[in-house]
Design a protein around this nucleic acid. Structure first.
Lengths: 342, 342
DNA sequence: CTGTTAGCGCTTTCAA
DNA sequence: TTGAAAGCGCTAACAG
C-alpha cells in the first residue's frame, strides 16, 4: 500500500497547494471550476492533483457548504422486488445528478423507520425519499419539518402543509381497470383478494373494484372480498377458502401478483383450469408475472418511474430552496397488461 | 416549519452548551457517553438537547474523527433479485452496527464502477463491499489500496496482497451437487446451459458439472454444453436449440433459475413433461424458483448471508485498523433444494 | 469532573 | 487573477 494513499495520511488540498506553490483557494477554484484561474495555473494544479492522487474530501466540503450531495432512501425492504425497482429508479436519477444515496430498510417497523430517519438527519442528507411510510400523519409532518426536503412515495398525507412532494400510483384507477377488463370478458361474479387489511393501496384498489362494478350496474357483494397477506402462500390459502365459500365466482382479482400466483397454485390443486374455469388478474406486474404459467394478466405499476420521479421532485425542491414550496403531487397511472390468465 | 429546525439555522453543540452553561466538550461527552460527566450535568445537557431538538452533525464529527460511519455497496443492479438480497444482508448488519450504506449500481459497466468507487472515496466511506466487480485485477488492486477497507463478493482475485477480504460461494461444489443429484436419479445424458461465456461463476459451475461426471465415470460431452444469457428468454431459446441438436438429453442443468424457467417454458412449447421427459435443475434459488410449476429443484446460493458476512468481515477489518491485515477468504457452501422439476 | 486550545479539510468573504 | 483570515461543527489532547 503506497504511503500517499493511506487513509491516515491522505493528500489534502494544502498538499496540492504547497506542491504547486499557490494557496488552497486556487486549488479549490480549479476543483470547483469557479472563479477565474489562469490557464497556466489551472494546468499546474491539475497536474499536481494527478501526481499526488488527490481526492477532495466531500466531508470537509459539506461542512463548509452545508450541502452533502447525499440523499436518503427509506423503504420497507429492498429484497422485495417492488421496492428494489423503486430503489433502482431513485439511484439512477440520483447518480445522474451527482448525488449518492443511503439505503435504509425499515421492515415496516415504525420504530426502525423513525430511527433511520434520525440517522439520515445526522448525516445531513440533502433530501429523503420516503416510501410506504408506516408513520402516522402527525409524525410524518414532524419529520418533514426537520428535514430540508422530503418526497413521499405511495403514501397519502392530507394537508401536508408546506414542503412535501408526493409521488404515487393511482390505485383506484388500477383496480377499476383490472375489474373492467374482467367485466368485458363477460365475468359477472368477480371476487377480490384484497391484501392486508391495513394496506392503504389495498383499500384504494378495492374502491376501484367497486367503482367498476357500479359502472357496470352490478351490485357489490361483500362476501366476495377477502383479505390476505401480500404473499403467494397467503393468496393460495385465501383462494382455497373463498372458492369454497363462493364457488359461483368465475374470476378473481388479486391484491398483487404474488397473491395471484398463490391463486394459480390453488387452481392447480383443485383442478381448475386458468383462465377457463377461473380468470385471474394480478397487480404490480413484477417480473415473475410474465414467467408463471399461465402468464399473469395484471395491472402494471411503474415502480421504476416512481423512484425516478420521486428524486426529480426532490432535487427540484432542494435546488429551489428558499422559494415557496407549494405542495406538489405526481400521480402515475397504472396500465393493464393482458396476458394469458384472464 | 419551525425556525429552530430549518437546515439553514440548525441547532449546534454550542447552542446546547450555551443553554446549559457548560463548554461544548461537556456536551460532546454526554453525547458520546465518554469521559466522566456528573449525573446532574448530564441530565441538564440531555434536557437541553431535547428542548432544542439538537442533532449532532455526523459531518462535523467525521471531519474531526476521520471516521464516517458509512459504507459503500457496489453492485451491478439492485433490481436483480440476487443482488437485492445481498444488499439486504449488507444493510442489515451495517444498520445493526450503526453504519449507513451508500447504494451504488454499476450496470456491469467498468467505467461506471470506477466512477462510483471514486465518489465513495470522496465521501470517505469507512469501507466498501464490492460485488461481482468487472474491473481487472490490477485496477481492483489499485482501488483496494486507495481505500481503508474493501471486501470482495463473488469475485476472485489472485494474490490480493495485503488487505482484501473475500466472501464467495463455492460454485464448483454447487455445480457438482446439482449434477450429482441428476446422476443419482439415473440420468446419464445431462446437458448444461452454462450462462454468459464471460461469467466466472459459470465457469466454476461448469467445472463442478465436469467433476461430477468424472466421479461417475462418465465422459464429458462438449456438445451438451451451451452458453446463454442469464435470463429466462435466453434460457428458453438455448433449450430449444440444444434439445433439437441433442434430443438424447434427459436432463438439463441451468446456469441460474431464470434460465431454468426459460427451459420450463420451452418444454411447455415442445410438449415435454417436466420432470418425466426432461429433468431441470436451476441455480440460486431465487423466490421465483418455488413459485413456478413445477417448482424448481435448484442449488441455493445464500445471498443474504453473502451480504451479511461481507459486512462482518469488512467491519472486522475497519475496527482492527493498523493490525496486520492478512488475506481472509470466506467460502459459503451452496445447498441443494429438491423440489419437483427433477 | 470540566474547560481550553487546536485543529479536521474545505469554502466564504474580503482584500490585494 | 490570487491570497489571507475566519469559520463550518465537532473532537483530541491536554490542563486544571
Amino acid at each position: 500500500m503506497s504511503e500517499l494513499s493511506r487513509a491516515s495520511d491522505r493528500v489534502t488540498m494544502s498538499d496540492v497547494a504547497r506542491e504547486v506553490g499557490v494557496s488552497t483557494m486556487t486549488v479549490s477554484r480549479v476543483i470547483n471550476d469557479k472563479g477565474d484561474v489562469s490557464p497556466a495555473t489551472r494546468r499546474r494544479v491539475n497536474e499536481a492533483i494527478q501526481r499526488l492522487g488527490y481526492r477532495p474530501s466531500s466531508i470537509a466540503r459539506s461542512l463548509a457548504t452545508r450541502h452533502t450531495g447525499t440523499l436518503g432512501l427509506v423503504i420497507p425492504d429492498v429484497a422485495n422486488p417492488f421496492f428494489a425497482e423503486v430503489a433502482r429508479g431513485v439511484e439512477q436519477v440520483a447518480y445522474a445528478e451527482g448525488y449518492n444515496v443511503f439505503l435504509c430498510n425499515t421492515d415496516e417497523d415504525p420504530v426502525r423507520e423513525l430511527d433511520v430517519l434520525g440517522s439520515l438527519e445526522e448525516k445531513r442528507v440533502d433530501g429523503i425519499v420516503l416510501c410506504s411510510s408506516r408513520l402516522d400523519s402527525a409524525t410524518i409532518r414532524l419529520v418533514i419539518e426537520s428535514h430540508a426536503a422530503v418526497t413521499l412515495v405511495n403514501r397519502h398525507i392530507d394537508d401536508a402543509g408546506s414542503g412535501v412532494g408526493v409521488v404515487r400510483v393511482d390505485d383506484v384507477t388500477g383496480g377499476r381497470l383490472a375489474t373492467a377488463h374482467l367485466l368485458e370478458r363477460g365475468h359477472r361474479a368477480i371476487g377480490f383478494l384484497s391484501g392486508p387489511p391495513g394496506s392503504h393501496s389495498g383499500q384504494l384498489r378495492l374502491q376501484g373494484y367497486r367503482n367498476a362494478l357500479l359502472e357496470a350496474g352490478l351490485v357489490f357483494n361483500e362476501t366476495w372480498v377477502v383479505g390476505c397477506g401480500p404473499v403467494a402462500e397467503a393468496g393460495r390459502a385465501a383462494a382455497l377458502r373463498l372458492l369454497t365459500s363462493a364457488p359461483e365466482l368465475t374470476a378473481l382479482l388479486c391484491y398483487n401478483d404474488l397473491v395471484a400466483v398463490g391463486v394459480l397454485q390453488a387452481c392447480v390443486e383443485t383442478g381448475r383450469r386458468v383462465p377457463l374455469d377461473l380468470a385471474v388478474v394480478g397487480f404490480d406486474d413484477i417480473p415473475l408475472a410474465a414467467l408463471v404459467t399461465p402468464a399473469l394478466t395484471t395491472c402494471r405499476v411503474p415502480r421504476h418511474e416512481l423512484g425516478m420521479r420521486a428524486v426529480e421532485l426532490l432535487l427540484n425542491r432542494i435546488r429551489t430552496d428558499g422559494a415557496e414550496q407549494q405542495q406538489q403531487e405526481i400521480v402515475l397511472q397504472p396500465e393493464l397488461v393482458v396476458r394469458a390468465s384472464a
